[in-house]
Amino acid sequence: MPTIRNFKKTDATQVDAVAIAAFEQYEEAYLDWSEFKENIGRMSALSNVGEVIVAEEDGQIVGAVAYIGAGKPKASYFQPEWPIMRMLVVAPYARGRGIGRILAKECISRAQRDGASLFALHTSGLMDVALPMYKRMGFKWVRNTPPIHGVEYGVYIKDLSG
C-alpha cells in the first residue's frame, strides 16, 4: 500500500504528470484537449488554495487529490461553506488497488476534522470507475454543472452528519 502524505512543493512535477496521465484516456471526449490538458497539468497549484494529498510508493507519486476546505475559493456551483474534493487522480499503472478510495477517504476525514456536515465533489459519467466508487461511498447527485470542454459534469454530496 502507498504512503499517504501531504504534498510538498518538490512533488509538483510528479503530481502534474500523474494528473495528465490519469486523464489521457479521455482525450477524445474533450472538445479542446490541449487547453484541458494544460489546466489539469497545473494540479499542483491547488496547493495554493487547499491541501493536496499524495499517495507515494517507492519514491514515486502514484495518486493525488486536493481537499479544499469551507470558505476557500471554489467554483460557483459549490456552496462556499462546503469542503470539496478536486482532481482525484491515480497513475494508470497503479489503478485497481484502492488508491483512489484511500485518497477520497482521506479527504472525507479532513472534512470531518473541520466539522463539516456535508462534503462535495464534481465528476462526470465519463469517469466510469470513479463515479460508481463515489456512489458506493455514499455520494448523491445534486445538480448538473456547466460542461467542461463539452463533457457533462454533476455535483455530488455526501452527508457527514450521520
Rank of each mutant, 00 (worst) to 15 (best):
I157M: 10
A45K: 09
Y156N: 03
L121A: 03
P83L: 07
S124R: 14
P132A: 12
K140C: 15
G71K: 14
L88Q: 12
V15T: 05
R113A: 09
W82E: 12
Q60R: 13
N6L: 15
Q14T: 07
Y93T: 10
K74H: 07
G63C: 03
I148G: 04
M127T: 03
P147K: 03
T13W: 01
G96Y: 02
V54L: 12
L103D: 04
R97G: 12
P147F: 03
D32H: 15
G41E: 01
T13I: 04
E152L: 03
T145D: 10
R5Q: 08
R101V: 07
I157K: 09
P83M: 06
R86K: 15
R110L: 14
G50N: 00
K37F: 08
W33Q: 15
Q60A: 13
A22Y: 01
S161Y: 01
I68P: 01
K105S: 07
A116R: 05
N39W: 05
I40A: 04
I68L: 06
I157A: 12
N144S: 11
A21N: 02
G41N: 02
F78I: 08
F36Q: 07
E57V: 08
F139S: 08
R42L: 10
P146W: 04
I102E: 10
G50V: 00
S109E: 14
S76N: 10
E24M: 08
F119C: 10
Y153W: 08
A66R: 01
V90M: 05
E27Q: 14
V65W: 00
Q14A: 14
M133L: 13
F139Q: 06
A22R: 00
V155Q: 01
L131Q: 10
M43V: 08
A17T: 09
A130L: 03
A75T: 10
Y134S: 00
V151P: 01
E27T: 14
A17Y: 01
N144A: 10
D16P: 12
S117Y: 08
A111R: 02
L88D: 07
E28P: 09
A116M: 08
A22E: 09
I20E: 02
E27K: 15
I102S: 06
F36N: 08
L103G: 01
I157H: 09
G150A: 04
R5N: 11
E24D: 07
Y26S: 04
S124W: 09
G71S: 05
G98W: 02
